[in-house]
Design a protein around this nucleic acid. Structure first.
Lengths: 168, 168
DNA sequence: CCCAGGTATTTGAAGCGTCAACTGATCGCC
DNA sequence: GGCGATCAGTTGACGCTTCAAATACCTGGG
């Protein structure tokens, strides 16, 4: 019987870095939400949705495109767009050419909301994140982020092609 | 009237890095949860709670200490410990010396759960994060993480010392 | 022309986190 | 010694996310 998984533990430095990351993962989203809720009555996720629409041609995207751009499930997007539509910031309309699609469009009111909310949000992002780094660090973090996203996209080596589970 | 807030926009590189960070912030927690739920029926946050207890003297912490160590509100901790207690992984007991405190203790069963869950989780953390970085990058990310946490702890310059609210 | 299969989206229920209100217990001050 | 202040913790309601199931529409094959 093969030794299933030698723990392959994190050494001190690895553990320390991981700890910082977990803390940032926990607290940063909370802080972003807090600022936006306080200043604009908006969650960070909602703001991302509005922003994506504001940058799309004709301020319009199909639901599944929108979902992909903010890494959300279609169900989450459906609920969120419900809410945003309720506020009058987004308008939903079935696609004329292909009835399977639904187009979400940013309304003028939604556009105004984005414009008036953005500066405060950017200032927060600067203060909490961007301004804590030098130019070189900025580039490096960008690059590391891309690698992590790539790892997230690759299937775990666990998605075995039958009986090829590596014993690590 | 003072020019309210010059937008101070993010340049291309800053925006790119921020985008990567937002994506990681969105997707990494989801992936960590997914692995733990799949392999151990546990959310990442629950695992953090169990881990903190497992490392504490006598595997015991007061509720508010536990909360602080995982950056959670006391209310969240109360709910989570309810759940964990329901699984028999944690035991709650009012502190004998000072009736205001409640001690949360990791049970033997909880200890076993941590021990059997940890290797798979560590492997995931390695694959998704740690192994995407060189040693130097690891140190740098740790340091940047610390700076971001520090920024999260400092009050926004907006916490005005009376009548000094900047005009936004 | 109609049906099987695939894709896009919505819906509703269940679970978790947040917030505000509340209970209990200790401390300090007169 | 009693009373307000403060701190620890719990509770319940509400909102958001997830998950699974349902709907709606198109496409290709017989």
């Amino acid at each position: 019987m093969v030794p299933v998984t030698e723990p392959d533990w994190l050494d001190e430095q690895e553990m320390d870095t991981w700890l910082q990351i977990v803390r940032v993962l926990t607290r940063l989203p909370y802080a972003l939400d807090a600022q936006l809720v306080r200043d604009a009555g908006l969650r960070h996720f909602d703001f991302q949705v509005l922003t994506q629409l504001s940058q799309a041609p004709a301020r319009t995207l199909r639901m599944h495109e929108l979902a992909a751009q903010v890494s959300a499930s279609s169900s989450r997007i459906a609920h969120v767009v419900d809410r945003l539509e309720g506020h009058g910031w987004v308008h939903r309309e079935p696609c004329a050419e292909d009835g399977r699609f639904t187009n979400a469009t940013l309304t003028d009111e939604g556009w105004r909301k984005v414009v008036e909310t953005a500066p405060g949000h950017v200032a927060t992002v600067r203060r909490l994140v961007i301004d804590t780094m030098s130019r070189e660090e900025l580039a490096q973090v960008g690059s590391i982020g891309r690698r992590i996203l790539q790892a997230l996209d690759s299937p775990p080596p666990d998605a075995r092609p039958t009986g090829t589970r590596r014993s690590r």
